[in-house]
Design a protein around this nucleic acid. Structure first.
Lengths: 194, 194
DNA sequence: CGCTCATTTCTAAGCGCTCGCTTATGATGC
DNA sequence: GCATCATAAGCGAGCGCTTAGAAATGAGCG
């Protein structure tokens, strides 16, 4: 997941990683471009050949993160599975991803206020696709009678909330393993809708 | 809930409210003391007779918020109720509070990185008390056999997550009424543990 | 009620520092 | 030898916070 993407220099990747760490720790507004550079023993201006501004750096991170979680969920979503199993697997992966990438996830979930209006819109469009993955499963489960929960929208909202919030506290004294956490949350998800 | 507290000037209250709005919108690091003053048509220095620093202002807000949600939950917690009803009422109130005070809640949940180490410790101590309110209910429900969920700790974590995350997205197109949201979340909570 | 006086809370100005970002220029590698 | 990526230096603006002093406030008292 820290694989260098095609068409991107290793330095750009390192800058993004340093920015993620700092944004997650003290927020976008609380991070200066000089702090990011310092983490890499670079000069303060070294970022600008790779990202034209601090906002573009945030946008690149947000785009990467949102695409990452969407791809991860779609990769494990299998419409041939029984509805309960299908939901379990997807929630497992959602929660696991938030734990595994908790710093990136923090930026993705809490620091978007630093984006321009246009960039923000692009990001929320991807977010809607992520929600839709869960929504389709829940709607089908209700239609088939396998889920007994009343309102599909509310259940989807709650399931998303549950998973998203992982990045706020992970890791904790009691939870350090993303896979174990995923299994726990997968179980709780099924309890909630069935 | 916006009642002026004893021993506090009206100006201090107005400054806190302006700071909450700005911290919630662009983060603690993204807010300058001049921006807070501007919202009140005050000079930039007007804050300092009331709060000795920007960090003390954040601390006052965080303290107020954490005490508020703890008091709200304790006020509705009734140990004579059946475990399910008891849990429902408390979760209802927790979720409702996060929705009702979503700006304050955002600061309380996401901006604590601006606190000194010592202030942070004081805050997390209050937070543990809040978790404990839920934990006692869940543990008792499991002991009595009314709840079938396996791990009490995991269930408490998930219930907290569910409620805390409300402040991240509230209000939305589909959810604007804190009381209605509370009822929805109360139901989902019981489904999760029973 | 009107008046005084100490205290509190405001404003204008500004200190030293850091901010995001640009420029000019030198090093690096296909 | 040309594009790419780094650097040091620095621009104008804004940062948290302090100071000096003016205005507002409220208690005590004739």
């Amino acid at each position: 997941m820290t694989v260098t993407r095609t068409g991107e220099s290793a330095a750009a990747e390192r800058i993004r990683q340093a920015a993620i760490a700092s944004f997650a720790e003290v927020g976008y507004g609380g991070t200066s471009t000089r702090q990011i550079a310092k983490r890499l023993n670079m000069s303060a201006a070294a970022m600008y050949p790779h990202y034209r501004s601090k906002e573009e750096l945030l946008y690149a991170i947000a785009l990467d993160g949102h695409r990452g979680v969407l791809a991860a969920m779609r990769a494990v979503d299998d419409s041939d599975l029984p509805d309960s199993e299908r939901l379990r697997v997807v929630v497992e992966e959602f929660a696991r991803w938030q734990a595994e990438h908790h710093e990136l996830a923090k930026v993705v979930q809490y620091e978007l206020h630093g984006l321009t209006r246009e960039h923000y819109r692009t990001i929320t469009a991807i977010r809607r696709e992520t929600t839709e993955v869960l929504a389709e499963i829940v709607r089908r489960g209700i239609a088939s009678g396998e889920f007994t929960v009343g309102a599909a929208d509310d259940a989807v909202l709650a399931l998303s909330s549950l998973c998203v919030d992982v990045c706020r506290w992970f890791p904790s004294r009691t939870h350090r393993d993303p896979v174990v956490l995923g299994r726990t949350y997968g179980d709780l998800a099924i309890r909630m809708v069935r």
